[in-house]
Amino acid sequence: MKKVSQYQPRDERAHPPYVSPRYVSTARRAPLLPAVAIPQSLSELTGPVFGDEVVRHGDDDLTTNAGTGSPALGERIIVSGQVLEARGRPVSNTLVEVWQCNAAGRYPHVHDTHDAPLDPNFLGAGRMLTDAEGWYQFTTIKPGAYPWRNDHNAWRPAHIHFSLFGPAFLTRLVTQMYFPGDPLLDLDAIYMSVPDAAARQRLVAKFEREASRPHFALGYRFDIVLRGREETPMEGS
């Protein structure tokens, strides 16, 4: 019988609670009853595997992947990092999906009504698979800040949305990456929905001179840590 590893619990200090009073719309959308704890079975310990069928050449360059032939406007940046399990194992070959607004703070989404210009050459979405050591990298432009309706003068700090799978259903993670030194961070109800200050810091990318390409783009490093496997495998099915 093959053995299957269990995962460490979700770290409740690291993740935002559903009810987050400063983030006003959680009031009507947060589950209120306690979650039912269940053991990890094959349903949670397995997860989808994606390959080249979902990632196309050029999907990792958001400055050109709108396919219009003209580059997106804005400050070009390279974002890279390693996807790891909490115990330091790299997560290889896992799908990373990113989306963001343009340099002016506007999404091309039909429901974004912010009065800032659309960029006809910026799709604002990318996809990639991590390599054997868990590394991903994409080229984009630095997103702008944008207002939202949380309170009368609320602005989202510049951010890039990330979606990750990891090896198992229970390692699925959707998060956001922020930029260092942004004065909007401490005012942002979504960033601040993470109760632990050290955990919040893990959402902030680091500027890295070595990750920059001379005469091309500045580099930011954003490592992502998913739930990790426990050391001792348990008896499988």
Binding site: R10, A14, H111, G124, A125, L173, L203
Partner: peptide
């Protein structure tokens, strides 16, 4: 500490990244 990266909301505009349709 677990070092887990915190989750964040999908926000209202995830379609372009996760569920892309022309509409």
């Amino acid at each position: 500490p677990s070092w887990q990266t915190p989750a964040q909301t999908l926000g209202p505009f995830f379609h372009q990244g996760l569920a892309r349709t022309r509409q």
